[in-house]
């Protein structure tokens, strides 16, 4: 049994306008995990944005659901090569959550229940590019897929869309997350096949 992949580079078939290089289309929704699945109760769920000055902005589950809701229809691309087209989500845009947050930070580190982290440029979380998603395909997001809420940043490889999201820390300097520390790309653009550091 070969447990360590020889790497995820390479080209496969598919509509080149929808399927990035090296990806294949799946109609399943594979579950990738790095540990036990956290069971997060919405009664105690919070999402916190902490700025570079230490200011904290926190929303409860009820407060999140009271914000304007959006329903992005989008394709998603996992670094392990699968792409899933035409997915439907509901959630709150990061534009809405960042509206009253004063910051000059350039980066964000996403934190999850269970200890997972991933880093992104803050500008990739704004302008209608990212959401805190709580519904998939019309149903509450399953815990195995990150429920009750996950980050959704579909223009980057899906490891950036942190499951079980608990908060964002805004940073002046980039700080590598869980997979980025272990050799994966800091940005992760599937259309430029930025899988590994140095790609």
């Amino acid at each position: 049994m070969n447990l360590i992949t020889r790497g995820f580079h390479g080209r496969r078939g598919g509509d080149p306008t929808r399927i990035p290089p090296g990806q294949y289309e799946t109609h399943d929704f594979p579950v990738l995990t790095v540990g036990p699945t956290p069971r997060v109760d919405t009664d105690t769920w919070t999402f916190t944005i902490t700025t570079e000055t230490g200011a904290r902005h926190t929303w409860t589950w009820e407060q999140l659901l009271a914000l304007p809701q959006e329903s992005p229809h989008t394709d998603i691309h996992c670094v392990t090569r699968w792409s899933k087209l035409d997915t439907d989500w509901t959630g709150v845009s990061l534009d809405t959550l960042l509206e009253d947050v004063e910051t000059t930070a350039e980066y964000a580190l996403a934190h999850s229940h269970g200890g997972y982290t991933t880093d992104l440029p803050l500008q990739d979380l704004t302008d209608g590019q990212a959401w805190i998603a709580h519904t998939f395909d019309g149903h509450p997001l399953d815990p195995e897929h990150g429920g009750p809420a996950r980050l959704l940043v579909p223009h980057l490889y899906f490891w950036k869309s942190a499951k079980w999201i608990s908060g964002l820390t805004l940073l002046d300097e980039d700080e590598p997350g869980f997979w980025e520390q272990a050799g994966y790309h800091d940005y992760g653009d599937p259309w430029r096949e930025q899988r590994y550091r140095g790609d």
Binding site: I4, R6, F8, P36, T80, W159, W179, A182, Y196
Partner: peptide, 20 residues
């Protein structure tokens, strides 16, 4: 995307192994 190994007692991350 890589091997993740955890403690059976507390689930703390023990090691990660990624082939790039």
């Amino acid at each position: 995307p890589g091997l993740v190994v955890r403690c059976p007692g507390c689930e703390v991350l023990v090691l990660r192994l990624v082939r790039t």
